[in-house]
Design a protein around this nucleic acid. Sequence first.
RNA 1: GGGCGAUUAGCUCAGUUGGUAGAGCAAUCCGUUUACACCGGAAAGGUCGGGGGUUCGAGUCCCUCAUCGCCCACCA
Length: 731
Amino acid sequence: MQPSIPKKFLKPYNPQETESNIYKTWLDSGFFNPDVCVQKGVTRSDAPIFSIVLPPPNVTGTLHIGHATMLAIEDSLVRFERMRGKRTLWLPGTDHAAIATQSRVEKNLEKEKIRRHDLGREEFLKRVHQFAQESHDTITDQIRGMGASVDWSREAYTLDEPRSRAVRTAFKKMYDDGLIYRGYRIVNWDPKGQTTISDDEIVYTEASTTLYTFKYAKDFPIPIATTRPETKVGDTAVAVHPEGKYKKFIGTEYDVDFVGEKIHLKIVADTAVDQAFGTGAVGVTPAHSHTDWEIAQRHQLPLKQVIDEFGKMTVPAPLLAGKKVTEARAAVVDWLKQNELVEKEETITHNLATAERSGGIIEPLPKLQWFVAVNKEFSRNGVSTTLKKIMREAVASGSIKIIPERFEKIYFNWIENLHDWCISRQIWFGHRIPVWYRSNAKKEEIYCDIEPPQGDDWTQDPDTLDTWFSSGLWTFSPLGWPNQTPDFKTYHPTSLLETGYDILFFWVARMILMSGYLLDTIPFHTVYLHGLVRDSKGRKMSKSLGNIIDPLEMTKKYGADAVRLSLLIGTGPGNDSKLSEDKIRGYKNFANKIWNATRFVLENTADVSLETKPQLSAKNESDLQEFKNFSQDITTDIEHYRLYLAAEKLYHYFWHTFADNIIEESKKAIAQSDESLAHSARWTLAYLLVALLKFLHPFMPFVTEAIWESLPKNLKTSEPELLLIASWPFH
RNA sequence: GGGCGAUUAGCUCAGUUGGUAGAGCAAUCCGUUUACACCGGAAAGGUCGGGGGUUCGAGUCCCUCAUCGCCCACCA
């Protein structure tokens, strides 16, 4: 008897003609939305919650392979929890990514020889918003293409009105508590991007440079070493170690003429001076160095700014005035040589601070900016604490668990070194700082609130906020906060945050800060950090190397299931993984294997009913027992986030136990005359296939759902129409 | 300078509380038997980076060295 099976099984599995239809079926069902699952009786209303926010991709273009990894991991977990009966919310969204997006648009404009100031704030922002919208549309298409079962009805954007309101609310509360302040301090100025950036946005690159040892003047007693001679016109002191060889000069003061600039130097004692480096004395430039600024603070030294926002010298000395720092450096060195003041020149390698986004060389400058005070004491529930303490405690107490654990140490180390967070940016795209100024003859007024002040004589601060300020709110702003919405009450704190280890500080730490401070709670219980996807040789993927594996292209070629599996298997938490097209191809073959095994099972099980279990042969009983043990193993692995193990084990079981062994054995059983043995084999095949589809579904949702929709009635009498909401076996 | 990770078969990686070394891919040989050649079968391949220690027993724990990689700090 050759039963008629769906025609589609007569050809190899074709993901291209299957996937978009399947995704549409899921969307139409509404089951990505946990409310629908409850309404339709799929999920119990009192079921445990599993909630997770999608790390919002930047609207800077398209998704890369790292995003695909994130989607594969998160979707697998989300589908697993949904099938286990939890009330499961996966909340999607996108990030405006302030600097990143603005500089992308500026680069595009450069091609037309247009600068942002040519357009003006309003027109420029129009262009950025348009670009952001296009990126958004591409990105959400890609998210769908990966099969991500996110609840689109709750989609959010870090710059939409509800999220902007959340940002202003957070800002005001911190401002009122004195945790956000405006201060004149040394900041990291990016002359190329024309904005300040935070410490975390600095990328250090190794560069070789010349270290000059010189004296300010012939009669000056202490030689100084520097890599930046041009800044020395801004020196206001020389710091020496209190117990060092220049001890006897401490307290003396000198007036010198330096490259045509009069400078006044005081010799001060400071333990920050390393006697072993250079000459054992430091020329203190308070306006253009972080450490010198701190020395200056300790000794009440004056501040002298000699470089402006464009990286040009501001001193009147004719040799230097208006010159760029590099030109000024040459000019100073020439002058020093002419005056025989250079004692030594040596080539050293040092770390050059550059801006992450623009690549500009950071110029430390004193500026009036907005900061979050991380060390300031404030009272919380009658106890004095600081933002730093809140961040540390959340992890130290075990309330938040980071996987892999070693990143907890890295996190603590970062917190120890954390300085106040500069949050104001001189760019146009982003959340405008909710502060307004008004001044008249008598006084200057400052106003901070969620809504603008009344009256038209107020001017809003032109700056925008660091993009991470708004993403710090991401676990709760999309749930409706500051309103106490049902979503907020139900789904916060979230269960899990899954993201790349490269944004542990940028993002994870800031979320812990914001949630801890604003809500007095943790933002998530577990942090799972995935690694970087590298090419088959272990190199970072980059445009210049031409080794980028585009997830979209791979999905088209091999199907989303194959791409997902190749990104999951061999990818432990926190470890970088290597990806090659070969690997993806291998998992495409697996999808086809499942497809064909299904065909065989369907051809042999037309008369099987799974409603009642028949008397099974001893072999089949042991097959089932083995399978049950195996499946509990899988469940445990997923519960412990060992997706790489679970997926690999399933692959192996399906191929080498189910297909190579059980199916092959069943052929003999079916062929012989004892009808009860044959039926036992048929029933076992059907039973295992149905269960395996469920286990495989979180990892390979498309092919399993495509099979599920074509399963004949007798194999799914008590099962739902969609595998998406089938229940996880044995739990 | 401080910290972390990796080092297991040609390649990519597992090896969860210490108990006889595993998988996938590639390569070799055989095979087109009606689920699948996007396949099946067979065989091959490793002194688990080096050295030392703890233990009845170490890929696994401890020490040490080496190579590669990453993160943080930063020196003027």
